[in-house]
Design a protein around this nucleic acid. Structure first.
Length: 572
RNA sequence: GGGCCUGUAGCUCAAUGGUCAGAGCAGGGCGCUCAUAACGCCUUGGUUGGGGGUUCGAGUCCCUCCGGGCCUACCA
């Protein structure tokens, strides 16, 4: 039994996430966590909401709520949706927690003590009417290059030219439209990543088994231009972790907060502490996951994230940890994902394009989404969601291959033997062949899971389901029943046991259906099958079961067309 | 502009430089009748984006051209 720490990139607080966000981090992390738990390992699966930053403040403002209230509400909403998607976090924390405030300030203090913090004075655009400094992209104006009148301060979306806010002609606040802008001097703390570059670079080089997507992004940032640059870790905002040097004030930094990307990864640690608090445990309970000097030496730590998060997890956060000089657990494996696109374009939170998590659950059970998303996870490149493909895959895999298998065996049993596992008969060559084939498939499935090859794991699981149909076809209990009822009984008994086995094996992908299958078989025995023959004898003759309702209703053409139309345009 | 990823059957994807480039779906044929008109078996289908090169051997390595995507450091 091993100990696995798993974190999913923490979703931003400003709204309900779409399916692209889900498949890029939380869902595969959940798959992995459920699998490892199923294998009997000790798992700590952590997620949280990422609550700081300008977009959160603006979203709250737009909603007409105080920021703290807005975040509390949105956190509850996201937590509820996550639960309904079956995301099995041990704790779903909040980056605005007291635990994170203390830890973030602690790390900053340690970094300063070790000489990895620089104070830098810089000039930034201040909007007098908004009463706030504006990040570059919140300044709009006319592009000096192409004349586009909605160019942003960081880049013109029309001609793609990189811009500085001061390049813009007639600049205005993207928040209020105010042109009452001025350049003000402000002081910020910078994390001296450049001083840690060699250590980070060596560390990345040691990770030879990481996905290319992960290491290539890291190397690009390490080696591009003049190499890894220092990064500002404070902002002039009111909502965030107040800048302090450990538990001491930080002279000259009054009224400023830490940059959201500085405190967000620290929340992985803080959320584990929040978990301990919620469980009524003391600090040693979470430190044994995070401190190498307090029991985390045998922990394997895996992070899941979309590719846009990779620089922060391969560079900034490691810089924070290394720079602290303290023995914190660092990540062992980073599984990163490309993007899921929607019907040829991008999912877009701002434009409401695509399917959002709450909407997805309104129209179909979570397992439908889980299965499709995971079996089409964007691992080697971006992958595309289309309603046609979704309907076809889900109907074929879940309804026809798995669901119908369960129907045919349970209903056949009921009609010939009643709702009880029948007695009699002994295995012949077909059964031994099945067991052998099953064992090989399960091993392949385990290998894929261990390597976090999500799509391949899904394909193996599906092949395992197919074995059941192949067996039934070959064994044909409906024929043997006529001449050799005992043999038919043995075949049906094996078929019923396959359902339980499938429930156990499928649980990481489709946990709700897995529960329904076990409930129908009236068993709670969900041990991972070490010995396949034994696993197929768990339900003994005489064991009562219930023929389940249709587990996976098919998606009709009418529904598909309706949803296709509904989600084409703007959310609403 | 620079960098990275990607291009394989109608579709979605596999393939440590080494048998005849493989699966699933879709298409075609046959079988079965327990089952959600489901399942099983067989089968059609590819000049691996184009062109050069290295090699005994290239989907895989190199060069070049074409197409798609992403990143480029103050959104997170």
């Amino acid at each position: 039994m091993a100990r696995h720490l798993i974190t999913s990139a923490i979703p931003y607080i400003n709204g309900i996430k779409h399916l692209g966000n889900l498949v890029g981090s939380q869902l595969p992390a959940d798959l992995f966590a459920r699998y490892l738990r199923g294998r009997g390992h000790e798992v700590m699966f952590i997620c949280a909401t990422d609550e700081h930053g300008t977009p959160a403040e603006l979203a709250a403002q737009k909603a007409g709520q105080p920021i703290a209230e807005f975040c509390a509400e949105m956190h509850a909403v996201q937590a509820d949706i996550a639960r309904r998607f079956g995301l099995s976090f041990d704790h779903f924390g909040r980056s605005s927690s007291e635990r994170n405030r203390v830890l973030t300030q602690h790390f900053a203090g340690r970094l300063a003590d070790n000489g990895y913090i620089a104070e830098v004075s810089e000039k930034q655009v201040y909007s007098v009417d908004d009463g706030r400094f504006l990040p570059d992209r919140y300044i709009e104006g006319t592009c000096p290059n192409c004349g586009y009148d909605k160019a942003r301060g960081d880049q013109c979306e029309n001609c793609t030219k990189q811009l500085d806010p001061t390049d813009l002609i007639e600049p205005r606040s993207a928040i209020s439209g105010s042109t009452n802008l001025e350049v003000r001097e402000t002081k910020h703390l910078y994390l001296r990543q450049s001083a840690l570059k060699d250590q980070i670079s060596d560390w990345i080089d040691s990770k030879t088994d990481w996905p290319i997507l992960t290491t290539s992004i890291a190397r690009k940032w390490l080696n591009d231009g003049e190499g890894l640059q220092d990064r500002g870790i404070t902002r002039d905002l009111s909502w965030g972790v107040p800048v302090r040097r450990g538990d001491q004030p930080w002279p000259g930094m009054e009224g400023k907060v830490f940059y959201v990307w500085f405190d967000a990864p620290i929340e992985y640690i803080a959320a584990t502490a929040e978990w301990a608090d919620a469980q009524g445990l003391d600090d040693s309970a979470w430190r044994r996951w995070w401190r190498l000097d307090q029991g985390a030496g045998d922990v394997t730590y895996t992070q899941f994230m979309g590719k846009d998060n990779v620089p922060f997890h391969t560079l900034s956060f490691p810089a924070t940890i290394i720079g602290s000089g303290e023995p914190w657990k660092m990540v062992d494996y980073i599984k990163s994902f490309n993007y899921l696109t929607y019907d040829g374009g991008q999912f877009s939170t701002s434009q409401g394009r695509g399917v959002f998590m709450d909407q997805a659950l309104e129209i179909l059970p979570a397992d439908y989404w889980r299965w499709w998303l995971l079996s089409h996870a964007p691992e080697s490149g971006d992958s595309e969601f289309t309603w046609d493909n979704f309907q076809q895959s889900v109907n074929k895999d879940l309804a026809d291959v798995l669901g119908n298998f369960i129907s045919r065996i349970t209903k056949f049993c009921r009609s010939k033997f009643g709702e009880v596992v029948p007695e009699g008969g002994e295995y012949g060559p077909q059964e031994h062949e099945l067991i052998e084939a099953m064992a090989a498939r399960i091993r392949a499935y385990e290998d894929c899971m261990a390597r976090m090859e999500v799509r391949k794991a899904a394909a193996e699981l599906r092949a395992i389901w197919v074995l059941g149909n192949e067996y039934l076809q070959a064994a044909a209990p409906w024929s043997t029943f006529k001449t050799d009822p005992e043999r038919a009984a043995m075949q049906v008994r094996l078929g019923l046991n396959l359902i339980r086995l499938y429930a156990v094996l499928s649980a990481p992908f489709i946990p709700f259906s897995s529960d329904a299958m076990l409930a129908a078989m009236r068993t709670g025995q969900r041990d991972w099958p070490g010995d396949v023959a034994g696993a197929l004898a768990v339900l003994p003759a005489g064991h009562a079961f219930t023929v389940p309702e249709v587990l996976f209703a098919k998606i009709s053409d009418e529904s598909r067309e309706e949803w296709q139309a509904r989600f084409q345009g703007v959310r609403g």
